Computed example of a mutant assay.
Amino acid sequence: MGHNINFNEQTGKYSFFSVQQKAWHNLGQIVSDYPTSAEAIQYAGLDFTIAKQPNTHNLPSGKSIESKTSFFTYRTDNEAVLGASVGKDYHIVQNREAFAFFDAIVGGGDGILYETAGAFGQGERIFITAKLPGYIRVGSGEDVTEKYIFLTTAHDGSGSITAAFTPIRIVCQNTLNAALKGMSNVVRIKHTAGAKQRLEDAHKVMGLADRLSVELEGIFNNWASVRVSDNEMKKLIELALCPNKETFDLLKKGAQDELSTVFKNTVQDAFAYAMMSDTQQMETTKGTLFGAYNAVTGYYQNVRSYKDDEAKLQSLIMGGTAQGKAQAAFDLCRGFADAGADIFKFN
C-alpha cells in the first residue's frame, strides 16, 4: 500500500507526526510526548500558509485577462498549486485555524491530546487526530475503545471542513464509526466567509462525542451479551457488505451460486477474520453480535487493501465505502438485537 504523504523538499521531511507509535510506512516524525498545537503543526510539517490568486486566461492574441470569478490556491512557502479553480467566495482556513478548533477545547480543561497530524499530496489535504479523555469499555473492561476527534480540511476546494467523533477499538485498531438514529457523528463546515467563526464554534462536537460515547457503550455491552451462530454471523456479514440491489435480490432468493466471485471472496475474507482473528476470540466478540459488527469494521481496517493511506482514510472515516458498510453493519446488528434472526426473513 502506498502513502501519498506530502514530502517537503525544503525541509527534507515527510509531513506527518505520530506520538510514540511508529509513523506510517516509517515516514514522518515520532515524538515521545503529546505536543502542544504549535509543536504539532511543526512536527507534522503543517507550518505553511495558503493564499489565493485569480486565474489568468491567455488569449490567442497574446493578451491575458485576469479572472474575476475563478481563483487558484497555493502554498506560500514553495508556491505549489493546491487548487486550480476555486470560487471568489472560497474562504481559506489556514492550518493553524484548524488546530484552533482543538485549542478552544483544550483551554476548557477537557484534556485533549494531539496524537497524529499530517498532509497528503502537495499539502492540499490535512488531517488531525486528537484523543479525548476516557474510554468506552465493553464486557469486564479488557475490551477498550479510545475516543478521538478527527478533523480534516482541503485547500483545493474539493470539500468541506469535517470534524468527526471516531472511536477506535484498541486491541485491533478498528474504527468503530457509527451514526445513531437521529444523531450524526460528523460536523461539516463550508469554506465560506463565515467558516473561521463556525470552525471556532465547532466544539459542539465535544457534546456530540460525550452523548455518543454513553450510548455506544450501552449498545456495545448489550451486543457482547447477544449470542449469534456462525451461520447468523455470516448472514449479517453478507447483508452488511451487500454492494447493490442485484446482489441483495440474489441473497433474498438464496441464489449463492449466482453471486459474483468478488463479493463471495469479500464475504469469505470478512468471515475468516471473524472466525480466526485473535481479537475475535475475546469474551466480548467470540460468537457475539459485537463480534459480528467487529468482523465488518475489522475487515476494512485490517484485511482489505487500499491504493494508499489517503484512500484508506477516505474509506474509513471520511464517508467512504468502509464507513458506509460499518453503518450498515451497525444498523443490522441493532435490528438483530431487537428482532433476532427474524431480520433474515425477507418480505
Rank of each mutant, 00 (worst) to 15 (best):
F16V: 14
L151K: 11
F120G: 05
S184L: 06
K22V: 08
T73N: 06
L199T: 10
L113M: 08
C172K: 13
A98Q: 03
N302K: 08
F101D: 00
K147Y: 03
F344C: 04
F48D: 06
I343R: 05
K245P: 11
D309V: 08
N177M: 09
V226P: 01
F165S: 13
A240C: 12
A84L: 15
A164I: 10
T247I: 00
R75G: 11
G335S: 09
A337D: 11
A295P: 02
S67P: 01
S213M: 13
V144Q: 07
T297K: 04
F220T: 04
I237N: 07
Q94A: 11
S315M: 06
L132A: 10
L332T: 00
S158L: 04
V205C: 08
L113Q: 07
K131N: 12
L316D: 03
V262P: 05
A255M: 07
A328H: 01
T69L: 06
G108Y: 00
Q301E: 13
R75M: 14
T116G: 06
T56K: 10
I189R: 00
A270S: 10
A84C: 14
Y74N: 05
N177I: 08
R198H: 09
E258P: 02
F101R: 02
S64T: 05
K204H: 10
F290W: 09
C333W: 00
S277Y: 09
I30W: 01
N8P: 08
L46E: 05
T297L: 07
L313W: 15
D77C: 08
N78F: 02
E217H: 14
T261Q: 10
G12N: 04
D278K: 13
S315Q: 04
R96F: 13
T321M: 08
K325D: 05
A40V: 11
L113Y: 03
I170F: 13
A51P: 07
Q280T: 04
L332K: 00
T297F: 04
E310C: 11
T285L: 14
E9V: 03
